[in-house]
Design a protein around this nucleic acid. Structure first.
Lengths: 227, 227
DNA sequence: CCCGAACTGTCAGCACTCTGTCAGTTTTCT
DNA sequence: AGAAAACTGACAGAGTGCTGACAGTTCGGG
């Protein structure tokens, strides 16, 4: 899961980064509205945490522009305490949730997860796809109920496939979601992780549609003949 | 275990701090309602002791706001003697227990411990996780029934893992619960304590999920290959 | 008041795991 | 058959976690 954090207070930004990372997100930090607009409009995030009070370009404006441009990433707004107007305006502008400052990290993480799940169309933290079970909270994967030990990167990949179980995910998209805008990696890196995952999970879990990408068998995305 | 004490009478606050520290808590003091609201809403405590009669912001209001914000820490209220209304209101507002002033420190400690245990989903003062037994009341740990002498900090760590036996706890979270908001410590401090604990408890008690965190073997969180 | 013991954080070095790349192979499609 | 796409085993650099040594602090006893 890839997250963009737009926050100019360094202290809070660092806390957010730490907590989201621990929750399994790939975090990218941005400190001003103009950069935020650019990044959110260009890149593809699973979650955006947006502080409204920003230098250079107001957070609400940024959000409105994103939505106007067709960006559909779930946005979690951070508002100053008791700023009702901000809240209402934020939701008008297309925010999916808001959290008044100060807040507790656990709550932010909980809401972040809820947003990601909702965006994926599923309400549950643990997902069953065929023989595979993925638990986003515990960051574990199991086959037929037997836990499989996966590394952090492997888990990010399998979790992403689980959230997108209803479609085939192109390897370029996986690359982007695993490494963010750090494009120093070859496409083959994804293939390597897939291979390692297959070795651990067994055959018949991750399917390939040549020319399109990967998907989970037992999800709603695989083809007739490709099983 | 991390505790927040909200009390404006200095004398009592000091007594509370001393007693709770002796009982193995990491104590943070706050003297007025507004600060209390902020801290309780932001940080994550295993226990909150709340005096109702506070400057700046009434204790009941603080409690209600915490609950509204999703704070689930167990709260122990201190009320003036015979103030029945306060008691009822407090429980309505989401308090978990109350104690009329004046009270005996022993009683407060006993109730505090009970609350922490209950919050961990278990009513028992002593917990069994695999070969390990942790006794919250007596601050002792044993392996196969044989007592192991642990230092205060070591106990805080093992107790936290015991309460969170169903998941893998990231080292950053341990750092937070061991030292509170004093972030002057390196992550390596946690690793050092883990090493010392392992030397005392023997192998196969504290497990590592590289890249994720630590957990107790025999809890409900460990993986297949990592045993 | 001084001494020693216990406790705890930091440092530095070590070992192991993780992960990206390369190169060579296999599979699939035309 | 040929080309493109995907797979996989091997390798190496980077990163993470572990541990022994050391030093500052605290606390209790003499």
């Amino acid at each position: 899961m890839r997250a963009l954090v737009v926050e100019d207070e360094l202290r809070i930004a660092a806390d957010l980064e730490r907590a989201l990372k621990a929750a399994g997100f790939l975090v990218e930090l941005v400190a001003d509205g103009e950069t935020a607009w650019f990044r959110g409009g260009t890149e593809n995030y699973d979650l955006i945490v947006l502080d409204l009070n920003l230098p250079r370009l107001d957070g609400l404006t940024v959000l409105k522009r994103w939505r106007a441009e067709g960006c559909e990433s779930p946005v979690l707004i951070l508002t100053a305490r008791g700023a009702w107007t901000e809240r209402v305006e934020g939701i008008d502008a297309g925010a999916d949730d808001y959290l008044p400052k100060p807040f507790r990290m656990e709550e932010l993480i909980a809401r972040a997860r809820a947003l990601v799940r909702r965006a994926g169309g599923r309400g549950n933290a643990t997902q069953q796809i065929g023989r595979l079970t993925v638990d986003i909270n515990r960051m574990t994967a199991s086959i037929d109920g037997i836990p499989v030990s996966v590394t952090p990167l492997e888990f990010r990949l399998i979790a992403y496939l689980a959230v997108n179980r209803d479609r085939t995910v192109p390897p370029t998209e996986l690359l982007e979601h695993l490494y963010g805008d750090d494009d120093s990696r070859e496409l083959n890196a994804v293939e390597a992780i897939i291979t390692r995952l297959r070795r651990k999970l067994g055959a018949g879990v991750i399917g390939t549609r040549r020319g399109f990408g990967y998907h989970l068998e037992g999800g709603e995305a695989q083809m007739q003949g490709s099983a």
